[in-house]
Design a protein around this nucleic acid. Structure first.
Lengths: 290, 290
DNA sequence: CGTGCCAGGTGCCTT
DNA sequence: AAGGCACTTGGCACG
């Protein structure tokens, strides 16, 4: 049996089971009436109630109620779990250092205690990240702008690494900041910092352009972009469902190593057209008043 | 009994128990060998392995392994849980809309299924937040600067709400941005946006000062502050280390004013605020509400 | 280990 | 509902 459970144990029985489970490196769940106190980076206290305590062999401790996704209290991995019986009651204490933090769970009653041997693949691959978006744009740089030439990704600057750096058809340096979701003012500020850093470092007389690539942008961010002469290109992240008007959709089905050249495969009906103002994809922030 | 558990049920038995537990609004844990697939804002797939599935009556679904604090897969509150037996195996599906997201857990074997009736106080009071820091500073504005006069908190601007707004002894407007942790460049940008907003809105000829209040600042952020003529004041956030008692003591340490640029308005000495000659006072940011 | 930044961030609150 | 932001953010990658 890979899962052992005791129902309504005495506090001392629970303690024995707990220590055995710690020994085996099991994943442990304890359900019962308890109080919770946390003290460390902040401090909190939680009155008596039925909750689920989840203890992981890596030192994680999670206190869950019947609501919300986040635990009401927790302790990060690397903490040390200790169990003891004080005043006839089970106390589970999870401690870590730097910063010093302590989580105490005092059980009034233990209704159930389970110990499970957990194993299995933990390799989870998530697609749809910003890195995926970047790769898609490297495959099709024209999505950003016709003739845009990528030169570097994660180019380091004084202000931090630039998502995508390149040149436009006029040879002007272009800083591209990628966001996979609708962006607020902070992203505009971030782009502005990068542009300023490149202007300082390269010291070129050629003005540095800054382009924010995201599905959409909030009003404040749009104004902030305009203030700094930055641009915005609407691009839906890869593998996203639905299509918002005026934005380009990237499909990353090119994961096959064979580079199927589908450059002619342009789904949008709008002309790939002349380089005079084509507002469908690239819009200058100071002209698009909405 | 408030917790019912079945060990190694058949998939069909597990389904019955599950549906009963859904009906009762129980907190449910399922432990077994399973695969997990998620598709929505992103997409992921997880191969066969022993994991713990936690289903909450509010629609939350969490898949936990033996490591890490965050679940390896999840579904936020408001989702709908569905259970079914397909090909003789239990499948738990959690779905939500806007955005459309689906989480599928296919069980090869169900080793344990528990249903628990959870109730209890959920009122958690956390001290040490940014709001606490702000209250402490309202009590002792001299910590920011001798003679600083707070005028408003959360003052709205075009760039968003300002944490703390006031005037210095010369009557110049001061924008204060509070952070409870060591800050990076984004906080400096945020402060800069607020200062610019106030300068636009008030249109005063009096230059607007910006002060970042935080425990410490990274190098890049420091340089960024200097660039924009912004200032930094080191203040430790209220912490409750050393006392596990009921009332949280917030001892706000007084640190030296650290004017970043040389055009410092108030260099050296008197900003240490020793003019009020008080021993470090304990500031209660939170009335004993329970 | 600190620094910086993305995240399927989550949660809270205001407009 | 959308926007803006704090968070015991968590987690990762890099110097």
């Amino acid at each position: 049996m890979t899962a052992t459970t005791v129902h309504e144990p005495t506090h001392r029985e629970a303690l024995w089971e707990l220590e055995d489970a710690f020994e085996r490196g099991d994943l442990i769940t304890i359900f019962g009436r308890c109080t919770v106190e946390y003290d460390g980076r902040a401090a909190s206290s939680l009155g008596l109630g039925r909750r689920l305590l989840l203890l992981k062999p890596d030192g994680t401790a999670l206190v869950h109620t019947d609501e919300k996704q986040k635990p009401v209290n927790w302790q990060p991995p690397g903490s040390e779990h200790h169990a003891a019986v004080r005043d006839g009651r089970l106390r589970v204490r999870s401690v870590r250092t730097s910063p010093d933090e302590t989580l105490d769970v005092h059980f009034e009653t233990v209704e159930q205690l389970s110990a499970m041997a957990v194993s299995g693949r933990r390799d989870l691959s998530v697609t749809g990240s910003e890195a995926d978006l970047r790769n898609a744009l490297l495959d099709r740089p024209a999505v950003i702008e016709s003739g845009f030439e990528p030169l570097a990704t994660e180019r380091p600057t004084d202000a931090g690494p630039i998502d995508l750096f390149g040149r436009d058809t006029d040879g002007r340096p272009v800083v591209v900041e990628l966001k996979r979701r609708r962006v607020g003012p902070s992203a505009a500020s971030q782009l502005q910092r990068y542009v300023a850093a490149i202007e300082r470092e390269d010291g070129d007389d050629a003005a540095v352009r800054g382009i924010l690539v995201a599905p959409s942008v909030t009003d404040r961010a749009r104004r902030l972009l305009a203030e700094h002469g930055l641009e915005f290109v609407a691009v839906e992240p890869p593998s996203s469902t639905g299509d918002a008007g005026g934005s380009t959709t990237l499909d990353t089905e090119l994961s096959q190593t064979d580079a199927v050249d589908d450059s002619a495969h342009d789904p949008a009906g709008d002309a790939t057209g002349d380089d005079d103002g084509e507002p469908a994809r690239t819009l200058s922030a100071d002209e698009e008043s909405h």
